[in-house]
Simulated assay, not measured.
Amino acid sequence: MSGTITRNKVVDITYLVKDDSGTAIEQNDIPVSYLHGVQGELLPALEKALQGKKVGDTIEVLVPPAEGFGEYDAELTFTDQVENVPQEYRQIGAQAQFENDAGECKTFVVSKLEGDQITFDGNHPFAGKTVTFIVNVKAVRDASEQELAEGRPSRDYALETTNPPPLADRH
């Protein structure tokens, strides 16, 4: 087992995300695990910055929209009459799944309630924002054969260490 982050290592990290004014907008003090070098687990800018780091290291990475959560897309918002929306979705922050004609699902969040109008937004909450990640490396270990085959840390490992799932679907 090596304490250096390289391809096919399972890495446990904690992180803080700040917006461009320095305000904390997300924080996770419980370590999350990801499999280093596997596309899709982590933002590429973060993975690149973590390469070669060791347990105990802290990195700070500025991530502009183009390298992170994308530009804000106004076409991913829509407004409807509140009366057309089921009661359980009539609150800010409520999430609803919508499916397009191609069968692709996307989560939309209620972002605004104004009078008899409700607005849903399908953008990532950090879309259009330059954010700074402060990442602490908590553990590094060799991935098991099962983890390499699945392309992610094993759920058994995550349950044994009480880790939440890895930073997936963040980009």
Score class of each variant (00 low, 15 high):
residue 37 G to M: 04
residue 37 G to T: 01
residue 37 G to N: 01
residue 37 G to L: 02
residue 38 V to F: 10
residue 39 Q to A: 14
residue 41 E to G: 15
residue 41 E to V: 05
residue 42 L to M: 15
residue 42 L to S: 07
residue 44 P to S: 05
residue 46 L to I: 10
residue 46 L to F: 00
residue 48 K to D: 02
residue 48 K to R: 07
residue 48 K to M: 00
residue 50 L to I: 06
residue 51 Q to N: 11
residue 51 Q to A: 15
residue 51 Q to H: 15
residue 51 Q to S: 14
residue 52 G to K: 11
residue 52 G to P: 05
residue 52 G to Q: 09
residue 54 K to M: 12
residue 54 K to Q: 14
residue 55 V to A: 06
residue 57 D to H: 11
residue 58 T to V: 15
residue 59 I to N: 03
residue 59 I to A: 06
residue 59 I to G: 02
residue 60 E to K: 12
residue 61 V to I: 12
residue 64 P to Q: 01
residue 65 P to C: 02
residue 66 A to Q: 11
residue 66 A to P: 00
residue 66 A to N: 07
residue 67 E to G: 02
residue 68 G to M: 05
residue 69 F to M: 05
residue 70 G to E: 03
residue 70 G to M: 01
residue 70 G to D: 02
residue 70 G to H: 00
residue 70 G to S: 04
residue 70 G to C: 04
residue 71 E to L: 12
residue 75 E to A: 11
residue 76 L to M: 13
residue 77 T to S: 10
residue 77 T to I: 00
residue 79 T to G: 02
residue 80 D to E: 12
residue 80 D to Y: 01
residue 80 D to T: 14
residue 81 Q to W: 08
residue 81 Q to Y: 11
residue 81 Q to R: 10
residue 81 Q to A: 13
residue 81 Q to H: 08
residue 82 V to A: 15
residue 83 E to G: 11
residue 84 N to R: 15
residue 84 N to F: 14
residue 84 N to S: 14
residue 85 V to L: 05
residue 88 E to S: 14
residue 88 E to R: 15
residue 89 Y to A: 08
residue 89 Y to P: 03
residue 90 R to S: 05
residue 92 I to F: 08
residue 94 A to Q: 12
residue 94 A to S: 13
residue 94 A to V: 10
residue 95 Q to F: 01
residue 96 A to N: 10
residue 100 N to K: 04
residue 100 N to W: 06
residue 101 D to E: 14
residue 101 D to H: 03
residue 103 G to E: 09
residue 103 G to Y: 04
residue 104 E to F: 12
residue 104 E to Q: 15
residue 105 C to A: 12
residue 105 C to F: 13
residue 106 K to G: 03
residue 107 T to D: 12
residue 108 F to S: 06
residue 109 V to K: 13
residue 110 V to Q: 09
residue 110 V to S: 12
residue 111 S to T: 13
residue 111 S to W: 04
residue 112 K to T: 07
residue 112 K to H: 07
residue 113 L to A: 06
residue 113 L to T: 05
residue 113 L to H: 08
residue 113 L to Q: 07
residue 114 E to N: 11
residue 115 G to P: 01
residue 115 G to H: 05
residue 116 D to H: 03
residue 118 I to R: 07
residue 119 T to N: 07
residue 122 G to D: 07
residue 122 G to C: 09
residue 123 N to Y: 08
residue 125 P to Y: 09
residue 126 F to Q: 10
residue 128 G to T: 08
residue 128 G to S: 11
residue 129 K to M: 12
residue 130 T to E: 13
residue 131 V to H: 04
residue 131 V to E: 04
residue 132 T to Q: 10
residue 132 T to H: 00
residue 133 F to H: 13
residue 134 I to V: 15
residue 134 I to M: 10
residue 134 I to K: 14
residue 136 N to Q: 14
residue 137 V to Y: 03
residue 139 A to Y: 06
residue 140 V to M: 05
residue 140 V to P: 03
residue 141 R to K: 11
residue 142 D to Y: 08
residue 142 D to R: 10
residue 143 A to H: 00
residue 143 A to M: 03
residue 144 S to F: 01
residue 144 S to E: 02
residue 145 E to Y: 00
residue 146 Q to E: 14
residue 146 Q to P: 00
